[in-house]
Design a protein around this nucleic acid. Sequence first.
DNA 1: CGGGATCCAATAAGATACTG
DNA 2: CAGTATCTTATTGGATCCCG
Lengths: 121, 121
Amino acid sequence: MHIKRPEKTSPECIPNLLALRDSLELLGGKWKLLIVLHISCRPKELQHFKKLEKEITGISAKMLAKELKTLEENKIVTRTIQNTRPVTVTYALTAYGESLIPIARDLQQWGLNHRKIIKEK
Amino acid sequence: MHIKRPEKTSPECIPNLLALRDSLELLGGKWKLLIVLHISCRPKELQHFKKLEKEITGISAKMLAKELKTLEENKIVTRTIQNTRPVTVTYALTAYGESLIPIARDLQQWGLNHRKIIKEK
DNA sequence: CGGGATCCAATAAGATACTG
DNA sequence: CAGTATCTTATTGGATCCCG
């Protein structure tokens, strides 16, 4: 794959990097895209907080709660309190949140390939 | 855009999330993709350490050096010491590193759109 | 159960000084 | 100039406890 690179700095190139900053600020941590992809892997009925906590190895409840809250504030997931005793909470991707799936998959694919590249050294 | 979601958990879905972890561990911080895109915006001759430091607002020399070192170890950039007095160092994307450009651009585009979405609330 | 609040350890990152 | 080392501060994240 060859990507052309401008010979001179294009005027709009630098300013738009602010948008990348925004994305990285929101999504750049270890967990958020992982959570998004995890939710997308599951049928809606199974996306309980507890399930996510168990499936996402290494995440603490505190982290998961914090990350989900941020994702909710950014309209990427919805939070639904179920009428159970005791209370359970389920999460789902919004339609907007699903727009992150291709990006997450690309990164996933890249990581899969990267492991090979690095192993070769 | 509608993305189909499996009704049942696909067996290969969860394990592959390890690949996403790898990607996020390497690229998930605030700076690396930003650096990659910055380098890609510039003609090769201008990608000096000092230039990058000045252009990437908010990054410290220490951070930049550390991030570039990691990127180099992961074969995403090359590091070239110039025969100048005093010494200067230039960085360039490898062909492999260029494979990150589409991902970075997608994230950039997503961030551009996201700003609109969030402003609406 | 989900998730704050608090406290504490581990880590990351700024400032500064120093070398090839 | 491009880093590295050291010191110090800021931030993160885990552990625990509590409440609806």
